[in-house]
Design a protein around this nucleic acid. Structure first.
Lengths: 225, 225
DNA sequence: GTCCATTGTGTGACTTTGTCACTGTGTGCC
DNA sequence: GGCACACAGTGACAAAGTCACACAATGGAC
């Protein structure tokens, strides 16, 4: 079957899953379903637990925290080839937490029911490895976020974020507001910092966009401890 | 045997483990060893991965992050009756992270080798439950820390911490320096905030100690979002 | 006891960051 | 054109972090 062949492929797109036992792969593929979600849809959030564990095939999911004070901050992203173990596990026990996952683009994912997930953890040593490695990655990321929020200067953090968001391109399509959520700060702070960067000739600004002019200068600032 | 009886007991001290299958309990008890560590000993840290997974029987472990900038912040505590799954899992994959665990008192713990841990996860559904619940708790705690560091005012956070550290007693044996590490801020900031609390008659200060005079006022401030 | 190092705390000047209350200014829609 | 609406700029001020100190309490060493 063609469908079958297509489905088998998704497991191999995951670096951590490609080395699973054939039997485990088969189980994953057979008992999962491919789903698609439009841009900006809320994958999970307060009062909206995901029934399944997701393996992202295409697109990215932004996980952010909405504080009681009304402030927001981006915690991490789930990219294609990654899974949302952390979120799943969290929701198993505590659903009163305030993080939410939003699709940043159209998202394609393999949905694995909890029971299957549990089965896999029990059966497959390499799946256990995958799960715990994914946990580790997320948690060390969270440690990093705490460190940055608590101790890093805004200019350093903003430079870092601009580099991160730019990728290979030099123009970033974003607003000051969105950048402020990325860093958990106020819009005005971003506006001022970007102005300073612009004054130094490192960037150029236009409505809804930032263009990096002197990438090396930004990288230099971002690399400061 | 008396030893046997003693050992069997420790599993039942864990709310999450007491409902394990008898067979699983037995495995846990048989394949673990009770260890003791003195106050202020570093249980794990950069370049010092724990070989075993620990179940705390007595005492508390403080997990804190040491930033490249030299700053420190307390991330969470592991109390008697809790395990350090998170830390263990982290260290499985990434050992270049900067968190460390320090015994805050003499610590007694049951050490479970990794292989046994893996076995248990495979064999026992209720042990899996326990592990993922422990993960959830830690991670939601970390989300809370991020929220506080990013968005809460210092006075609110300090009031909260004073209440937390005081327990049932009214006198807290700590220094401004230690409090600043708790909240990931500077010693001077703590000194000034405590002075303000003292000026309002909410606390009294002496060298190495803070005495709560008007607990309700502190609680009131701490409960503010 | 005195001397002395260590640790804990107080303080002022200054910078950075966050908050508040605004004013403009593009953009698309009716 | 008029009108929302999202986006960006600004000044005044408050809160928090940084730096460079001074000074006090404590606990040995002698």
């Amino acid at each position: 079957m063609n469908d079958k062949a297509m489905e088998t492929l998704w497991v191999d797109r995951f670096p951590g899953l490609s080395r699973l036992e054939p039997r485990t792969k088969q189980l994953l593929v057979q008992r999962s379903s491919i789903i698609t979600m439009p841009t900006a849809s809320v994958i999970f959030g307060p009062g909206k637990s995901p029934e399944n564990m997701l393996f992202l095939l295409e697109g990215t999911v932004r996980v952010q925290q909405v504080s009681e004070t009304g402030h927001e901050i981006v915690l991490y992203r789930i990219n294609a080839g990654e899974s949302c173990v952390l979120t799943t596990a969290c929701l198993l026990a505590y659903d009163d937490y305030s993080a939410e996952g939003v699709a940043e683009s159209e998202v394609q994912a393999a949905a694995v029911p909890r029971i299957v997930f549990d089965d896999l953890v029990a059966q497959s040593p390499s799946f256990r490895n995958f799960v715990f490695a994914a946990f580790s990655k997320r948690i060390t990321d969270l440690f990093l976020v705490i460190d940055e929020v608590a101790f890093q200067r805004m200019d350093v953090r903003l430079a870092h974020k601009l580099i991160e968001l730019s990728g290979s391109d030099d123009t970033i399509a974003t607003t000051h507001q969105k950048l402020s959520v990325e860093l958990g700060t106020a819009r005005e702070v971003i506006s001022r910092q970007l102005q300073e960067f612009q004054r130094r000739g490192w960037i150029e600004q236009s409505r809804g966009a930032v263009r990096i002019v002197e990438r090396s200068k930004l990288e230099n600032l971002a690399d400061r401890d």
